[in-house]
Design a binder for these strands. Structure first.
Lengths: 104, 104
DNA sequence: AGGCTTTCTCTAGAATGTCTAGAGAAATGC
DNA sequence: GCATTTCTCTAGACATTCTAGAGAAAGCCT
């Protein structure tokens, strides 16, 4: 995992709709074609952090499999934060790309 | 800074030629158009780490400004490592990009 | 009924890498 | 003689991720 990107990825995934933690990891793994795998010891602290910051909100509900799970959704603040983090990612990833393209 | 990319950036910069630590930070800042700034408290531990791993080698020499500095250069092992890290970066950055493009 | 697998949440502690905030030293210019 | 520039280096704090677990409830199988 690229350190520092997990928060952004979670926020982005939640633009696809309300989702519980386990579902978020599934989605990230699926869309990234198994390149990105979030282990639970990283996910839950991240979710806690994001909720603490007011970027996501949670509520317990039943899943399709009839189990209780905490469903997360993006808040308005979270959307703004996502925009900020996307911009920052573009800037940084772009700069890294320029370095990698650097030639003598 | 994107955590985990510093080693790769340093290795890549050294493909441009032998350089001392301070010069490396200058180059990174210059090529990235000031987007990437390496502070010294990150750089020197990184250089130590890279030399420890055998990816770079160092020797003291005089600079253009007539000062003593430690000049670093890429080793053969370092070139291989750089190739590995570049691949990994492409994979990861690509996957992050796919997530960011994900739509409902 | 009992046991197994799947789905789901959660936590403590270690490991890693970066940042903050310094110190220090030598060369040059004023 | 003093300030600035160039350059190296370190200790300790900090944030995030990883390792390595525990736990619980639903559904399936025998």
């Amino acid at each position: 995992m690229l350190q520092g990107t997990l928060d952004m990825l979670v926020l982005q995934i939640l633009t696809l709709g309300r989702m519980h933690g386990w579902g978020i990891t599934q989605r990230i793994e699926q869309i990234s074609e198994s390149v990105l795998r979030v282990n639970q010891g990283s996910l839950y602290p991240a979710l806690y952090r994001l909720e603490e910051a007011g970027w996501i909100a949670s509520e317990w509900d039943a899943t399709e499999n009839n189990r209780q799970a905490k469903f997360y959704s993006l808040t308005a603040k979270g959307k703004k934060q996502l925009a900020t983090e996307r911009e920052s990612w573009e800037r940084l990833a772009g700069a890294v790309g320029r370095i990698l393209d650097a030639e003598v």
